[in-house]
Every structure is written in structure tokens, then in C-alpha cells.
Design a binder for these strands. Structure first.
Length: 195
DNA sequence: CGTAAGATGAAG
DNA sequence: TTCATCTTACGG
């Protein structure tokens, strides 16, 4: 049964860079009314306390409230008037850090994803934070959902990812704290987002 | 209130 | 390179 592979809440309550790296290879699943879609996480970014690029940098607001809560919940936000992006909240309650899930390698429900994304090209389905949210139907209704239980969840990697296969770079699309090495992706994977 | 910028994507 | 599209956050 796949649900016995779900990562426990305690997994998220640790160092955010550790979680960002450990999420690579894991499966993001959304069991929605339209059917089940999932993909292997191949790219992540860490957003930390004291990090000017983090939504939590200027303190709690209505939008970023989930980031200040306990670990293991989905922080979903709307950006550029068009797209949603999904994060996993990490660390202890009050420590507003999170991991942005930036790209997936599609695994289950490719036909559903193709219909939602209006393209059949596998590489176009989940190769970016806005794309994968659309492909898995993750939106405002999913903000605050637990990732360790329920329809939106993350399951452990089928095969372990070796540290040598993780590439570290600077984050994409930010202007402040742009020099920090907080983006992680699986080497040579064809589903990575582009700059 | 007014408004500028934003953890993006697609088209030209 | 430009634009779609709109919420949030911050200043007046």
C-alpha cells in the first residue's frame, strides 16, 4: 500500500536544507476528485529565517501564516496573478522556513496532467513550480493541508538518492539573497525548470 | 486608498 | 523580450 510510505510529520521538523535535499527522489501525490496524479521531486529550493527572499522575512501576514505554523503542512501561494506554487513547511513552529517544490518527473496520471496543462509533452507537464501545481491541481484550497496525511502527500523515495547526484546552485527568479546556494536538483534529470 | 513588485510561464 | 493578471504589502 502506497500510504504506508508517506513521510511522517517529524521528517519536516528538521533543518530546512536537509529537508530540501532529502525531498529529492520522493513522490508528491495529489489524490483529487479528477483522479490521482503524482511525480518524483527532482528540484527544490530552501527558504530560511533571515533570508530576504523568503516570504516570511518581514514577519507573519495572512498570506505566509502557514510558514509560521508547525512543520509538514503545505504552504501554497498565488504569484504573478496566474500561478500557484507549493512548499513544504519545515522546522519547529514559529520558525518560518519552507522548501519550494520546483519540478517533478511525472509518475501517475499523465493523461490527467496533460489535460490540465493542455500539452502532451512530458517535459512540459511539471518542469517548474507553476506548471507542477497546475498539473496536480494544487491551488488555494490546498494551502495549509498536511503533507503527512490526506489527499496531498509526499511519499518516501523508491530508490535512495546518492549525495553525488544532487547539484547545488543559486535560486531562480529572486532578486534579493540571490547568491545563496539553496537550490537543489537531481543531476542530468530532464524535468528540471529553466532559468 | 494607490501602486509597485513578485519564489512564473508562454508567446513573439 | 514582453506580457498576462492579480494579490500582497507598504507608503501616503
Amino acid at each position: 500500500l502506497s500510504s504506508c510510505n508517506v513521510l511522517p510529520q517529524a521528517f519536516y521538523a528538521q533543518d530546512t536544507v536537509t529537508v530540501a535535499r532529502a525531498l529529492l527522489g520522493c513522490l508528491l501525490v495529489h489524490d483529487s476528485a479528477d483522479g490521482l496524479t503524482s511525480g518524483r521531486i527532482v528540484e527544490t529550493e530552501a527558504y530560511l529565517m533571515g533570508d530576504e527572499a523568503a516570504h516570511s522575512f518581514r514577519g507573519p501576514t495572512a498570506r505566509n501564516a502557514v510558514m509560521f505554523g508547525p512543520a509538514g503542512y503545505a504552504y501554497v501561494y498565488f504569484i504573478y496573478g496566474v500561478h500557484y506554487c507549493v512548499n513544504a513547511v519545515t522546522q519547529a513552529e514559529g520558525v518560518a522556513e519552507a522548501v519550494l517544490i520546483r519540478a517533478l518527473e511525472p509518475v501517475d496520471g499523465l493523461a490527467i496532467m496533460a489535460a490540465r496543462r493542455r500539452t502532451d509533452t512530458p517535459r512540459q507537464l511539471c518542469s517548474g513550480p507553476g506548471k507542477l501545481s497546475q498539473a496536480l491541481a494544487i491551488g488555494a484550497a490546498q494551502n495549509g493541508l498536511p503533507l503527512f496525511d490526506g489527499p496531498l502527500r509526499i511519499e518516501a523515495a523508491q530508490t535512495p538518492v546518492h549525495a553525488d547526484d544532487i547539484v547545488t546552485t543559486t535560486r531562480i527568479g529572486i532578486t534579493r539573497a540571490a547568491e545563496l546556494p539553496l537550490r537543489f536538483y537531481l543531476r542530468d534529470n530532464s524535468h528540471i525548470s529553466k532559468r
